[in-house]
Amino acid sequence: MKFSRIAAAVTTAALAPAVLIASPAFADGPGAPDAGHQPATTTPDQSVPDQAEEDRKTILAIIAHPMASEYMKEAGHKAIADGPKAMRKFIEVDQHKIRLDDYRIAISRLTADAGPGLKEGINKLLSSRHDIDMLRHFYEVTQYELRDDDNRIEISRLIGTGGPAVKEAGKKALKGTPADRTQFLKTGRFLAQASDDRVELSRIEESWDGPILSEAIGKLLNGSPTPAELRHFLEVTQYELRDQDNRVAIAKIIDGGGPELVKAGRAALAGTAADRTEFLKTGQHEARAKDQAAKDKAAKDKPAPGKDGQDQGNGSGPGTGTGTGAGATGNTATTAQGHTGAPLATTGAGDNTTLIAGGAGTALVAGAGLLLAARMRRAGAQR
C-alpha cells in the first residue's frame, strides 16, 4: 500500500507542469501579457535584419562613391541623423534626383578640355530628354569614344604641320590604342617637337651671319633646354636677336654712306623690326642707286679740266687776229717777259682779254717810235 501511493504521487508531480502550460486557462489568465507585448525571447532570431542599420550602411556606401557630390554627401548624412524614415526616403527617392543633377554637372564640366566632337556630343545630350542611365553611359563610355575621335583629328593635324620627328611619332600613335594617342598629345608631341626644334636651330645658326643670334643659339644647344624653352626661342627670342643683329648691320652700312643711304638707314633704325629687315633686303640697294645717280649727274655737269667754257689757242677767240701795228702781221699773241716764245696765259674771257691785247699793241707802237728817234740822232751825228 505504501509503495503504490508513492508511485502515484511521483507520476502526478511529473505530469502537472505540462498540463498547466498547455491549459487555455493559463494562457489567457489575468497574469498573461497583452497581444503584441509578449516578452522577447532570451535568444533573438538572427535571420531578421535590422532595416534601419541596413539603410544606414546603404547610405554610407552611396556617399562614398567617387561620383557622389558634396550635396549628395550632405543629404546622406542628414538622412542618417533624421532617422529610419528619412533614410528610407533618401534611398528610394532623394539619391536618384541628386545623382541625376550630379551627372549633369559632371558632364558639363567635360567641355573645359573637350575637342569639337565631344563638345557637340555633350550639347546634344543635355539639350534632349535623358534619364540617369543615359547620363551614366555617356559619362562612363561615350565620352571616351568621342575624345579618341577628337584626338585622332588633332594628331592628323600635327602630322601635317610638324617636322620629321613629329610626323613619325604621330603616325605611330594613330596605329596604337586610345591610351597611346592620349599619351602622344600629353607628352610625346612635345618631345618629338623638341627634336625637330634642335635641328631647325642648328640650321639657323649655320645660315645666319649676325653674331648675336648665332652666339645665343650655340649657348642654348650646348645646355640642357626643355622642350618649352626650345619652342619659345624659336617663336619669340630668335626674332628679337635677329633685330639686334640687323641694327648693328644697318649702322655699319650707313657709316660713310651717301646722303640717300644715310637717310634711308636712319629711318629704318627709327622704325619697326620689319622696316629694318626691308631696308637690308631692298631699301639699302635702292638708296645706293639714288646716290650713284646723283654722283653721275654731278660729274656730267662739271666742266672738263683746263676749259672755262670758251675755246682758246685756236686763233678764233679773243687775243688773236691780224695785227695793224708797224712791222707785224699775223698772230699777235705776245709772250710774257722772261719767257721765250710761250704764249701769255689769260685769266678770263671777254673784256680782260681785250685789255691785254690792246696794251700789247700800244707797247709795240711806242717801241717802234723810240727806235726811229735813235736812228735820226745817229744820222745827225754823222753829218
Rank of each mutant, 00 (worst) to 15 (best):
I217E: 01
I217Y: 00
G218S: 13
G218C: 00
G218L: 03
G218W: 03
L220E: 04
L220N: 03
L221E: 03
L221C: 03
G223Y: 07
G223A: 08
G223L: 02
S224Y: 11
S224R: 15
T226F: 08
T226E: 15
P227S: 03
P227G: 00
P227K: 08
A228F: 09
A228R: 11
R231P: 02
R231N: 08
H232Y: 02
F233D: 06
L234F: 11
E235M: 12
T237V: 01
Q238S: 13
Q238R: 15
Y239H: 14
Y239C: 08
E240M: 04
E240D: 13
D243C: 04
Q244E: 15
D245F: 09
N246K: 05
R247Q: 15
V248F: 11
I250M: 11
A251I: 09
A251W: 04
A251Y: 03
K252E: 13
K252Y: 09
I253A: 11
I254D: 05
I254C: 05
D255C: 00
D255F: 05
D255E: 15
D255L: 12
G256Q: 02
G256F: 00
G258L: 07
E260V: 10
L261C: 07
V262I: 14
K263S: 15
K263G: 13
K263Y: 08
A264W: 09
A264K: 10
R266L: 12
R266D: 11
A268G: 07
L269H: 01
L269Y: 03
L269W: 05
L269T: 04
T272P: 03
A273W: 05
A274L: 04
D275R: 01
R276Q: 04
T277E: 11
L280H: 01
K281G: 01
T282D: 12
T282M: 06
T282G: 04
G283Y: 03
Q284S: 07
H285G: 10
H285W: 15
E286G: 04
E286W: 01
A287T: 05
A287K: 09
A289M: 11
A289D: 14
K290T: 12
K290C: 02
D291W: 04
Q292E: 15
A293R: 13
A294H: 14
D296M: 12
D296Y: 09
D296K: 15
K297A: 15
A298R: 10
A299S: 09
A299D: 15
K300I: 08
K302Q: 10
K302C: 04
K302M: 08
P303W: 06
A304R: 13
G306I: 08
G306P: 03
K307Q: 13
D311R: 10
Q312A: 09
Q312T: 13
G313H: 11
G313L: 06
N314M: 09
S316H: 14
S316R: 14
P318K: 01
G319A: 06
G319R: 09
T320R: 09
T320A: 14
G321K: 00
G321Y: 07
T322R: 15
G323E: 15
G323R: 13
G325D: 12
A328W: 12
T329E: 09
T329A: 10
G330Q: 00
G330T: 00
G330M: 00
G330F: 02
N331T: 04
T332G: 13
T332S: 10
T332W: 11
A333P: 01
T334G: 10
T334W: 12
T334L: 05
A336Q: 13
